[in-house]
Amino acid sequence: MTLLSVRDLRVSFPTRSGIFEAVRGVSFDLGRERLGVVGESGSGKSMTGRAILGLVRPPGRVTAQRLELEGQSILNLPEPQMRRLRGARISMVMQDPKFSLNPVMTVGRQIMESYRLHGKGDPRAKALEMLAAVQIRDPQRVFDAYPHEVSGGMGQRIMIAMMLAPDPDILIADEPTSALDVSVRNEVLHILDRLVRERGMGLIFISHDLNLVAQFCDRVLIMYAGRVVEELPAADLTRARHPYTQGLLNSLPRLDRPVDRLAVLQRQSSWRED
């Protein structure tokens, strides 16, 4: 079943030297699956996530033939309507918990706040339940803690707990593990994975880490200069056909394949076009 349908999504910004298109005609459908979006900085992957959530501020402009959440258009909704959608139906986890949590508010109050805006029932019980759901061993202690009193991995789990409290249909995770150590990273991924399976959520996983995406996601979109240049099942990433995807893969140092020099990506202007 299709949760989110995107056709010909474009995001443009006016600049002194004309219109700059950060996203140039992106199309995809998201079901209850883990969809990876990979690309370098500036490829438009984060901007695609922000456009879906209506977070592109003027003078930035979002256009699309279609941007539908379960059959209903969410393209350029008025802000009050968008606000009801954001968090409740589509949620986003950002890269660095240090900058996304309110430093002067306890963790528990922040989660309760996000729940009160969208949910019903006892917010305190729900907040504690969510903290337990993201594998925090002592939810009561963390509930009363301030963000500076918890580690980075814990902070990221708190962010996820907060975003999941209102039970969204779609979670957009923008580099959710880039600031984390490998051991903590695997724990956070495991939590995301379980939530997708158990709640039937759709996950858009934005990352620059090809190997991680290949192992974690079901399907991958590879973006270059604002366009999707290749789409393929994550398991087939090593068999990618587009020279850009191949170039990215080859530029990675690998433990199992020692090389003298790393291959350097030779960019071609044709990759920008269809």
């Binding site: 594998q135 490998v182 051991s183 990273r185 695997n186 495991h190 991680l212 192992q215 433990l255």
Partner: peptide
């Protein structure tokens, strides 16, 4: 390091964790 020959348990764990995210991983 390339061959994964680590003596200590911690280094072995770090090597495994870096090598892959395994869906069957059970840290719960």
């Amino acid at each position: 390091l390339r061959a994964g020959r680590a003596q200590s348990e911690y280094a072995r764990e770090l090597l495994t964790a870096s090598a892959s995210y395994d869906r069957g991983w059970s840290g719960a």
